[in-house]
């Protein structure tokens, strides 16, 4: 099968699967909807339940609970997966991801400090998360450049930074009880408290970053060739590396601002997508976005339904899946030093 045909089938299959999961996520729950009812409500009519007492409640649940939650899980999954793929390319390290090298923790600290200052939603939270993640990315970048650190050292440095940032955030939470109340959901990661108000600013930032990134795929590929080769074919590497780090931080920070500290998506999704598409960013990034969106949406749906009426925070489910996968990666490539 030709490469283009295979790619088209892969892309089409992933889109259909993710859309199916999104429809299921909207339909399934304590109150279930048929697809006809779902599209009826989304289309402006109340569907088969029109005229019944359930109509208004169903519409309310769908439009103000499940729809923002589904959009949030799709956006967070897409943003974190793409952010992970970009970081891995720019840092030339396939074990880099926003949660492992401390980018999520930086965003988390930003949000915690923002909440402590009394700003609980809107652009303020998104900006604080972005600032936190951006500062973390720059610290890692400067650390790796100044010390000429190996790929492993960059990861270990990121893990250390992760701990430091989490410790600072924990200290703020202990000292400020209001923040502590907000912080439990946030630290685990989940979408149960997502509202349009929290979602909108981050969604705009994520979409803007996607538009820019998807037009810079060749540049991202050239950055991975190494500084001298990339400069030799005309790319000002320093500027572009900085731009990609800012975009990766923007995506991770925006996602963390409404989804909390979801781990491992930025590691697992790009890793598996690379196996299917190879490393060319023109294929890697779109497929990471779609499959990341579908994967997080699926995890969120499962975490909602498995213990219904109770709900398992999706962050816990992510860690249960992500932890073993991460260990598998480390064990599998231990002998080959593939990631060194």
């Amino acid at each position: 099968m030709g490469s283009k045909k295979r790619w088209a089938m892969l892309l089409g299959g992933t889109i259909v699967t993710s859309l199916t999961i999104a429809v299921m996520s909207l339909c399934l729950g304590n109150i279930c909807f048929t697809p006809a009812e779902l599209f009826g409500i989304l289309g402006g009519s109340a569907g088969n339940r029109a005229g019944s007492g359930m109509a208004d409640m169903g519409k309310g649940i769908l439009l103000y609970a499940r729809l923002p939650r589904t959009i949030a899980s799709l956006l967070a999954g897409a943003a974190l997966a793409v952010s992970g793929a970009v970081l891995q390319n720019v840092l030339s390290n396939k074990l880099a991801s926003p949660s492992i090298i401390g980018v999520n923790a930086g965003a988390g600290l930003g949000v915690t400090l923002c909440c402590a200052a009394g700003v609980l939603s809107g652009y303020g939270v998104s900006c604080a998360a972005f600032a936190g993640s951006l500062i973390t990315v720059f610290i890692i970048f400067i650390f790796s450049c100044r010390t000429n650190a190996s790929k492993t050292t960059v990861i270990l440095g990121g893990v250390a930074l992760n701990s430091i940032l989490n410790a600072i955030a924990e200290s703020v939470t202990v000292l400020d009880t209001d923040v502590a109340m907000l912080s439990i959901d946030f630290r685990v990661g989940g979408f149960s408290s997502v509202s349009y108000q929290r979602l909108m600013p981050a969604a705009l930032l994520i979409l803007a970053a996607f538009v820019l990134l998807f037009t810079l795929c060749n540049e991202l590929d050239v950055v991975t060739l190494g500084d001298e080769t990339a400069q030799g074919i005309g790319l000002p590497v320093g500027k572009y590396r900085m731009l990609f780090l800012v975009l990766a931080a923007l995506l991770a920070g925006a996602a963390v601002s409404f989804a909390g500290l979801l781990g491992f998506i930025g590691l697992i999704v790009p890793h598996f997508v690379r196996r299917l598409t190879g490393n060319e960013s023109g294929r890697l990034l779109p497929l990471c976005a779609i499959s990341g969106a579908g994967f997080v949406n699926l995890c969120d749906m499962v975490s909602r339904l498995v213990f219904a009426p109770y709900e398992l925070p999706v962050g816990i489910l992510m860690s249960v899946i992500g932890g073993p996968v991460f260990l598998l990666l480390l064990v599998r490539y231990r002998g080959g030093h593939r990631y060194d």
Partner: peptide, 16 residues
């Protein structure tokens, strides 16, 4: 880069 093609000594092995 349109004037000089450069083949450096140390090169990353790109995953492409």
């Amino acid at each position: 880069a349109k004037k000089i093609a450069y083949l450096p000594q140390g090169k990353n092995i790109a995953d492409i």
